[in-house]
C-alpha cells in the first residue's frame, strides 16, 4: 500500500532532481572551478568589484518591495471587505496585466517614460516643463526640455512595482479573505473598535500573507535584468544583468556568473529565513 503510493511520487522526484537539484549542483561546481578545471575561490574574491551592483540590486528590490507592501496591503484589505462581485472584478483587473507579456509591459513603460515619451509630451503640453523652467530660472538653473525619468533608479523601481504588485496583493488578499469573520466579531465583542481589531487581530493574522507577498516580490526584483536594462537605460545595472553578461554577454565568464548567482541565492535565502523567523512560524509563509 505504502509502496504503491510512493510510486506516484517518482515522476515528481525525478523532475525535481533533474531540473532543480542538478542545476544547483552545477552552479556550485562552476562557482568553485576555473576554466581549466581546477578548484578556486577566485570567482568569489573577484566579486568585490561588483559591490555597487550588489548594493544597488538589494536596495532597489527592497524599495520596490516596500512600495508594493504599502500599496498592496491596503488594496488587499479594502478589496476583501467589499462584496463578492466587487472582489471578483477587482481580482480580475489586478491579474489582467499579467496576461500580457512581461517584456511588452516593460517596453510600454519605456515609451511612457522616455525623454520624448508620453509623459514628457504631456508635461510639455500642459506647460509643466515651462513652469519648471520658469522657477528653475530664478535659481539660475539651466532650462530643460524634458524631465529625466528613464534611466533613473526611480524608473527601475516603478517597473518592478508595476510588474510585481499583483504578487503582493494576491497572497495578502487571500489570507485576509479567508480569515474567520467570527474572530473579528469576537474582538469587537470584547470591546475593540475597528482600529484595534485591525491592529490586534487582522494585522497579526495576515502576516503569513505579507511574508509570502514580500518573498514573491523581493526575489524576482532582486534578480531581475529586463526591467533594469529597459527602464534603467544601461545605467542601473543589477545582479541579473551582471549574471546575464557572464553567460551571454561580452564579459563571458560562466564561473564568475555561477559564483554571483550562488552568493545572491545565499543572501536571499538568509533574508527569507530571517523574515520567516520574525513571523514566528505563524502558519508557514510560502518560500519560493
Amino acid at each position: 500500500m505504502k509502496n504503491k503510493r510512493a510510486l506516484f511520487a517518482v515522476p515528481y522526484v525525478g523532475w525535481m532532481t533533474l531540473f532543480v537539484v542538478v542545476p544547483i549542483i552545477m552552479v556550485v561546481i562552476y562557482a568553485f572551478a576555473t576554466a581549466e578545471g581546477g578548484v578556486t575561490l577566485e570567482n568569489f574574491s573577484s566579486m568585490g568589484t561588483y559591490a555597487s551592483v550588489f548594493t544597488r540590486s538589494f536596495w532597489l528590490a527592497l524599495l520596490a518591495t516596500l512600495i508594493c507592501l504599502l500599496i498592496g496591503y491596503p488594496a488587499a484589505y479594502f478589496i476583501s471587505r467589499e462584496g463578492p462581485r466587487f472582489q471578483r472584478l477587482a481580482m480580475m483587473l489586478i491579474m489582467l496585466p499579467m496576461w500580457m507579456n512581461f517584456l511588452l509591459r516593460t517596453y510600454s513603460w519605456m515609451s511612457v517614460l522616455e525623454n520624448n515619451g508620453l509623459l514628457n509630451q504631456l508635461f510639455r503640453n500642459i506647460g509643466l516643463i515651462s513652469l519648471y523652467n520658469g522657477i528653475a530660472g530664478l535659481f539660475g538653473r539651466a532650462p530643460v526640455d524634458h524631465f529625466q525619468m528613464i534611466g533613473t533608479p526611480g524608473a527601475v523601481v516603478l517597473g518592478m512595482v508595476y510588474n510585481y504588485l499583483p504578487f503582493m496583493i494576491l497572497p495578502i488578499y487571500s489570507v485576509i479573505e479567508k480569515m474567520d469573520r467570527s474572530l473579528l466579531e469576537a474582538a469587537q465583542d470584547l470591546g475593540a473598535g475597528s482600529a484595534r481589531v485591525f491592529r490586534k487581530v487582522i494585522l497579526p493574522l495576515s502576516l503569513p500573507g505579507v511574508l509570502s507577498g514580500v518573498t514573491m516580490v523581493f526575489v524576482p526584483s532582486v534578480s531581475t535584468f529586463a526591467i533594469s536594462r529597459l527602464l534603467g537605460g544601461g545605467t542601473q545595472m543589477m545582479l541579473g544583468d551582471l549574471i546575464e553578461q557572464q553567460f551571454l554577454g561580452g564579459a563571458y565568464n560562466p564561473h564568475l556568473g555561477a559564483a554571483i548567482s550562488l552568493v545572491m541565492m545565499v543572501i536571499v535565502v538568509v533574508c527569507m529565513v530571517v523574515m520567516n523567523h520574525f513571523g514566528e512560524g505563524e502558519e508557514q509563509a510560502v518560500m519560493l
Binding site: D180, E185, L190, G191, A192, L205
Partner: peptide, 29 residues
C-alpha cells in the same frame, strides 16, 4: 455597535485568537 454593549458572547465555534496564548486571549477585553 457591539464593542460598546455590556454584552459578551461565547461564539458557536469559540472564535479564539489563534495568534495569542490562553492568557492573552482571556486578557483581550
Amino acid at each position: 455597535p457591539p464593542n460598546q454593549r455590556q454584552v459578551n458572547t461565547v461564539f458557536q465555534r469559540y472564535a479564539l485568537f489563534p495568534h495569542l496564548n490562553v492568557f492573552e486571549n482571556v486578557a483581550f477585553g
